[in-house]
């Protein structure tokens, strides 16, 4: 009975995280903030659901499978989020006014400086090795 109540609370919590992510997706003004909102149920909502499963089915097979599911999700979800954020930065879909600090701009400026000096010293592609 107590376990049932716990797992129901976990399930409703995971569902509410999904709902919050979708509302944030609809309401947030920026690609990066939408990314922030959308990545909540991918890890934490799924973690709550997997806890509910592990409470309800206390056997070794399902629990190890649930562990594997969480491991895969934790490995792959940052990859997708990172790639979407990278593409969003490159296509300049971010509001500069919402940023406190753009640490990537310094790195981009340094790389462009290095690239331009490299190209001015060696112009032909035959010399690039």
């Amino acid at each position: 009975m107590i376990a049932d109540i716990f797992s129901i609370v976990f399930m409703i919590g995971g569902a509410l995280l999904s709902l919050a992510a979708s509302i944030g997706l609809l309401r947030f003004p920026d690609l990066m903030s939408r990314l922030h909102a959308g990545s909540k149920p991918q890890i934490f909502g799924l973690l709550l659901m997997m806890l509910a499963i592990a409470i309800q089915i206390p056997q070794w097979g399902p629990i190890t499978t649930v562990f594997l599911v969480m491991t895969f999700q934790m490995m792959t979800s940052p990859i997708g989020t990172h790639m979407v954020g990278r593409a969003g930065y490159r296509t300049k879909r971010l509001r500069r006014s919402m940023l406190y600090q753009d640490e990537l701009a310094d790195a981009v400026a340094r790389a462009e400086l290095r690239d331009s000096s490299h190209r001015s010293s060696r112009t032909l592609p035959k010399d690039r090795s």
Binding site: S18, G38, L46, M49, M50, A52, T81
Partner: peptide, 20 residues
Amino acid sequence: LDRMIANDVFLATLLCGLGA
């Protein structure tokens, strides 16, 4: 890219619903 984020959230919701 917004559509891809929505796609990710759709998949996460599907995972959560299947888990429930």
